[in-house]
Simulated assay, not measured.
Amino acid sequence: MLIDGKQMHIQITKGQIGRYVILPGDPARCEKIARYFDNPQKLASNREYTLYTGTLDGVQVGVCSTGIGGPSAAIALEELVECGADTFIRVGTSGGMQDDVKAGDICIATAAIRQEGTSREYLPIEFPAVANFDIVLALRDAAEQLGYPYHTGVIQSKDSFYGELRPHQQAIAEELLSKWKAWKAGGALTSEMETAALLIVSAVLGVRCGAVLNVLWNADNDAADTIPPDATERGVRAAVEALRLLIARDV
């Protein structure tokens, strides 16, 4: 779907962005992430999609925001692949689910619970949303190099932000609370809204995708004032360093 030669939503053309792309949700984070690149340049800004390009270790990389939730994230991934990208790291914020997942930690997703709707329009619910192994390893190595407290494992993706924060107010409160209890019992680390869709779409398109999530609170027991001042930057720095590792390993 091209308009004047550009992708309909992200508004760039093939060749304008490299194969390696970081995917935050918030457009305002794109410029901050691009500052870690050499020679960053803004490419486009349309709706929830803001894009920058630059280089790391002489290789072209990019950043593209996805907005909130699976539908807009899937659109971004589809169009970025059309433009030549094939390696993606989602960076986002989340709420910890396990007691030992604290504000300031980062969670590296090995897989995601598909409690959302977008991925069901790509693959049946029985198909797992699994992160690319090379990206998981690169993110783990980056977190260790940076000295950040981190966890690796399954995370939960959902469609309703307030369904998590205010489950008792929802008409299906009993179902939401029961599933939350089950996810925790199974060891789910943290909760967010985009990863499952991105992992499933990447599987269908045959590209690599992973995710690193900044934990800003624990959904059950953290106070807001416990958030470290650099909490939102930890996942970003881990993603940037992971891209450097992937670039070196892909040679």
Rank of each mutant, 00 (worst) to 15 (best):
residue 144 E to A: 11
residue 119 S to N: 06
residue 105 D to S: 05
residue 141 D to I: 00
residue 79 E to V: 09
residue 159 D to H: 14
residue 69 G to T: 07
residue 110 T to Q: 04
residue 66 T to S: 12
residue 120 R to C: 01
residue 133 F to L: 14
residue 186 G to Q: 15
residue 145 Q to H: 14
residue 160 S to F: 03
residue 185 A to P: 08
residue 125 I to C: 07
residue 67 G to K: 06
residue 128 P to D: 09
residue 176 L to V: 14
residue 92 G to Y: 01
residue 171 A to G: 08
residue 164 E to H: 12
residue 155 I to S: 13
residue 152 T to I: 13
residue 81 V to H: 11
residue 81 V to D: 02
residue 147 G to M: 06
residue 94 S to P: 05
residue 164 E to P: 02
residue 165 L to R: 11
residue 129 A to L: 08
residue 134 D to S: 11
residue 173 A to T: 07
residue 119 S to E: 07
residue 87 T to A: 03
residue 65 S to Y: 00
residue 67 G to A: 07
residue 150 Y to H: 15
residue 76 A to M: 06
residue 111 A to V: 00
residue 119 S to H: 10
residue 107 C to K: 04
residue 82 E to T: 10
residue 177 L to V: 05
residue 170 Q to Y: 04
residue 166 R to T: 10
residue 154 V to G: 01
residue 85 A to P: 07
residue 150 Y to Q: 08
residue 144 E to P: 00
residue 156 Q to K: 13
residue 76 A to G: 06
residue 180 W to I: 06
residue 77 L to E: 00
residue 134 D to G: 10
residue 129 A to S: 03
residue 86 D to H: 03
residue 110 T to A: 01
residue 142 A to R: 11
residue 67 G to Q: 05
residue 181 K to D: 08
residue 86 D to L: 05
residue 147 G to D: 02
residue 174 E to A: 14
residue 119 S to I: 03
residue 146 L to H: 09
residue 86 D to F: 00
residue 103 A to S: 10
residue 101 V to F: 00
residue 126 E to H: 15
residue 146 L to Q: 12
residue 69 G to L: 10
residue 102 K to Y: 00
residue 167 P to V: 09
residue 79 E to L: 11
residue 124 P to I: 02
residue 153 G to A: 05
residue 151 H to W: 01
residue 169 Q to W: 07
residue 106 I to V: 15
residue 108 I to E: 03
residue 62 G to F: 09
residue 148 Y to I: 07
residue 186 G to S: 10
residue 108 I to A: 03
residue 86 D to V: 04
residue 109 A to F: 02
residue 134 D to W: 01
residue 64 C to I: 12
residue 84 G to T: 00
residue 87 T to I: 11
residue 131 A to D: 02
residue 160 S to L: 08
residue 179 K to C: 01
residue 72 S to T: 12
residue 134 D to K: 13
residue 169 Q to A: 08
residue 132 N to Q: 01
residue 117 G to N: 09
residue 113 I to R: 05
residue 121 E to T: 12
residue 123 L to V: 09
residue 115 Q to K: 11
residue 79 E to M: 09
residue 138 A to P: 14
residue 132 N to K: 02
residue 140 R to V: 11
residue 135 I to K: 01
residue 114 R to W: 13
residue 104 G to C: 06
residue 100 D to R: 13
residue 93 T to K: 12
residue 109 A to Y: 03
residue 163 G to F: 02
residue 169 Q to T: 12
residue 116 E to N: 07
residue 167 P to W: 05
residue 108 I to M: 04
residue 143 A to D: 04
residue 166 R to P: 03
residue 81 V to F: 05
residue 97 M to E: 00
residue 70 G to R: 12
residue 184 K to F: 04
residue 163 G to Y: 00
residue 185 A to Y: 14
residue 81 V to K: 13
